[in-house]
Design a protein around this nucleic acid. Structure first.
Lengths: 143, 143
DNA sequence: ATGTATGCAAAACATTTGCACCTGG
DNA sequence: CCAGGTGCAAATGTTTTGCATACAT
């Protein structure tokens, strides 16, 4: 029951919040912008204001329920926080996103940070590439 | 003579472009936003429109003269492209930026990309931390 | 001269906020 | 009932664009 997640976060269980959480659930592994969510709600006949979506996403982020990323191209994208840190690789052609973690890199980041006289708090690492499977990629590009 | 850089890039040598390039030269190692540049020009009595600054920076980026970064916090920042790739660590308190390169990480990034079925084109890695030297850091924070 | 660059003001975006109204507990 | 949530429209901050004018070659 996901309404528990909301209560736990100290957020009242409202329709918009439930719906948005639901959409994020159904799109685990995808990365949606506020407007993506807005459109999805639109289509399923849930007219929720864009402002509310931004507000709710920000609250979710604060509560640690979602993570916000700034891939290239204007809009921020959001994904449900699965609890495990990971980084991303994005295809510059079709937009496909894969997640990964690499202990060695995490390790080096910590060391470098120390050497430069900082305490590491967070990091953002995004690799940009193109899918080797060109057919698949181009198919995805045209939705 | 930096006007050569402009000609080489196929850009007409104009006052705004020269001035902006000059400011970037004088601030190698810093990372300036379009507005930072605007203000600096202002102070030195060179009234150049903000729109022009954005246009010129974009042209410089296309020409490979500068690199654009999206650190957290709205504005994009620019730095002269010294030809050598590097990543950044930013202090979340005072905004200090240090640059570094780590061959091991670059190596791993390439391998991971391959494993996931992509061809690596580019990457962005930004570490966020706080300066260990608190005094220095807080001093910087208050400019 | 002439094609390109600039300045200004207006547009375009993504995101945030003020405020009157609505809703969950 | 009432604190908190929502919708709408307007404000914000950054970046882009249209167009008349100015400039480099």
């Amino acid at each position: 029951m996901e309404s528990q997640d909301l209560k736990k976060a100290g957020l009242k269980v409202t329709l918009p919040r439930m719906k948005i959480l639901e959409i994020l659930e159904q799109n685990r592994k995808k990365h949606l912008s506020a407007e993506d969510i807005y459109r999805i709600l639109m289509v399923s006949n849930n007219e929720i204001g864009l402002a509310t979506i931004y507000r709710v996403l920000t609250q979710f982020e604060t509560a640690g329920l979602v993570t916000r990323h700034h891939f290239e191209g204007g809009q921020a994208v959001f994904e449900l926080d699965c609890g495990v840190h990971h980084d991303h690789i994005v295809c510059v052609d079709c937009g496909k996103v894969e997640e990964f973690v690499d202990e060695m890199i995490e390790e080096r980041q910590k060391r470098i940070t120390e050497e430069l006289g900082f305490d590491l708090r967070d990091h953002s690492m995004i690799l940009y590439g193109v899918c080797k499977d060109r057919e698949d990629c181009l198919k995805r590009r045209n939705n």
